[in-house]
Computed example of a mutant assay.
Amino acid sequence: MSNEPTRARVVFMVRVPLDRTGAFLEGYEKIRYSVAEGVPGHLLDQVCRSDDDPEQWLITSEWETLAAFEAWESSPDHRELVRPLAQCITERRSLRFLIHKETRRRTPATSPT
């Protein structure tokens, strides 16, 4: 395996009771650009709601390295920033992955001839 830094994807599966959905989304809205524009190593994130279970949510984020995510997650700033979200969550599961390969739609300039 290469010594090059490897991008990482972090996945949180969370449960938010229906009566807390508004507060959860409001909390996410308040922090999303603080994280996207101010946390070193953060590349993007998404918040997704299950089509089958409206209390089941998926939050994914992509990072330059797993170490960048871990540094942010262990910081006091992180705990304070995500507190409004955390107060809405009744169950939480976290998974961390190193991105091995990525496939995107080919554009005419990148299609093989």
Rank of each mutant, 00 (worst) to 15 (best):
M1P: 05
M1H: 09
N3S: 15
E4F: 11
P5S: 08
P5R: 07
T6H: 10
R7S: 14
A8R: 01
A8S: 11
R9A: 13
R9F: 11
V11R: 10
F12K: 08
M13K: 13
V14D: 02
V14Y: 00
R15Q: 15
R15G: 01
V16T: 00
V16F: 01
V16R: 00
P17A: 08
P17W: 06
P17I: 02
L18T: 12
D19N: 11
R20A: 07
R20D: 08
R20C: 05
T21K: 09
T21M: 12
G22M: 15
L25D: 05
G27D: 08
G27K: 08
E29N: 12
K30I: 05
Y33F: 09
S34D: 15
S34Q: 15
A36Y: 05
E37V: 00
V39K: 00
P40H: 09
G41A: 04
G41T: 07
H42M: 11
H42V: 05
L44R: 11
L44H: 11
Q46H: 14
C48E: 15
R49A: 04
S50A: 06
D51L: 12
D51M: 10
D52C: 01
P54V: 00
E55V: 04
E55D: 13
Q56S: 11
Q56L: 09
W57I: 00
W57N: 01
L58Q: 09
S61N: 05
E62S: 08
E64G: 04
T65I: 06
L66A: 02
L66Q: 03
A67S: 12
A67Q: 08
A68H: 04
E70V: 00
E70C: 00
E70M: 05
A71R: 06
A71L: 04
W72K: 07
W72E: 03
E73T: 05
P76F: 05
D77A: 12
D77T: 11
H78L: 01
H78C: 13
H78A: 14
E80C: 02
E80N: 10
L81W: 00
L81P: 01
L81N: 03
V82Y: 10
R83G: 09
P84S: 11
L85S: 09
A86Q: 15
I89Y: 10
I89N: 03
T90P: 03
T90S: 14
E91F: 05
R92E: 12
S94M: 14
L95D: 15
L95Y: 15
I99G: 02
H100A: 13
K101P: 00
K101S: 08
E102V: 03
E102N: 08
E102K: 08
E102F: 00
T103G: 10
T103S: 09
R104F: 03
R105A: 13
R106E: 14
R106I: 07
T107V: 07
P108F: 03
P108S: 01
A109H: 09
T110A: 06
T110C: 06
S111P: 01
S111W: 10
P112E: 08
P112N: 02
T113V: 10
